[in-house]
C-alpha cells in the first residue's frame, strides 16, 4: 500500500484559512489501511476544523465524504455536486489522489491533508515500514522476495556491508540487517547459491520521473 500520514494540524488549518465551504474527501484505498485518510480520519479532521473555527468565532461549512478511490476519476461522479458547491477540496488521499482531483477539476482549489511517504506494509499495530522503492527493475527473484533497496540504508546489492553486526543494521541498530534476513530465508529455501551470484549494476534510468507505463494492446 501507499503509506501516508496526516500533515501537522497547524499546517492544514493555515492552508484552509481563507475558505468557508470545505469538502474533506477521504479515500477507502491505501490511506484507509494506513489510518491516515479513511472515513474515520475524515470525520476527525472535520471535527478538528469545526472546533478551531468555533474557538475563533469564524463561520465554516464542512462536508465530509469518502470515496472508493481518488486515483480514478470514475469515483468522482457521484460526488460531483459536492465538489462543485465547495470552495476547496481538502483531500485526504495520497499525492496521486490529489493530482487526479486537480486534473479532473481545473477550476477547483485542491489541497493535500496528508504527506505521502512510501510503499510499505503494516509491520505491527501502528507501525508501517517501507518495502518497495518502485525502482522499475525488480530483483526480488534473486533476493528471496526481500527487497534490499528499500530496507538497506546503503542500498547494498552485494550482501551485508562491513558494519553489519550480529544480524543488525549498522545505521539503524534496532533493525535487522536486510542481507541477514535474505541469507536466512535463502538458507530456508535451500537457495544459498544465490548469495554467491553477483547482481548486475542497477539500471537507475528507470527511476527517472515522470515515469509512464504504456500498454499498446490496451490503448484505444
Amino acid at each position: 500500500m501507499i503509506v501516508a500520514e496526516r500533515k501537522p494540524i497547524r499546517e492544514i488549518l493555515k492552508m484552509i484559512e481563507d475558505y468557508q465551504k470545505i469538502l474533506i474527501l477521504g479515500c477507502r484505498a491505501c490511506v484507509t489501511a494506513c489510518a491516515a485518510g479513511g472515513q474515520k480520519d475524515v470525520e476527525i479532521m472535520g471535527s478538528i476544523i469545526r472546533i478551531d473555527r468555533k474557538r475563533r468565532g469564524l463561520p465554516v461549512e464542512v462536508y465530509e465524504k469518502t470515496i472508493d478511490r481518488q486515483c480514478d476519476p470514475l469515483f468522482f461522479a457521484p460526488i460531483d455536486n459536492l465538489i462543485t458547491k465547495s470552495e476547496v477540496v481538502l483531500s485526504m488521499a495520497c499525492g496521486v489522489g490529489v493530482n487526479m482531483l486537480a486534473e479532473t477539476y481545473p477550476n477547483k482549489v485542491v489541497l493535500p491533508a496528508l504527506n505521502t511517504g512510501f510503499m510499505g506494509l503494516l509491520e505491527e499495530q501502528g507501525v508501517w515500514a517501507e518495502r518497495c522503492i518502485g525502482c522499475g527493475d525488480c530483483i526480488l527473484a534473486e533476493t528471496a522476495g526481500i527487497c534490499p533497496l528499500s530496507r538497506c540504508p546503503k542500498h547494498s546489492l552485494d550482501g551485508p556491508c562491513l558494519g553489519s553486526i550480529n544480524g543488525k543494521c549498522v545505521v539503524y541498530p534496532e533493525n535487522q540487517c536486510v542481507w541477514y534476513v535474505i541469507y536466512e530465508r535463502l538458507k530456508t529455501l535451500k537457495q544459498l547459491d544465490k548469495m554467491e551470484r553477483i547482481l548486475p549494476f542497477k539500471d537507475w534510468s528507470k527511476t527517472v520521473s515522470p515515469r509512464r507505463v504504456i500498454r499498446e494492446d490496451l490503448r484505444l
Binding site: K40, E43, I44, S47, I48, R50, I51, K54
Partner: peptide, 13 residues
C-alpha cells in the same frame, strides 16, 4: 472511547 467521541464535546461547546 475513540478519538472522535472525545473531540465531539469540544465541538458541542
Amino acid at each position: 472511547l475513540d478519538i472522535l467521541s472525545l473531540l465531539k464535546p469540544f465541538e458541542d461547546g
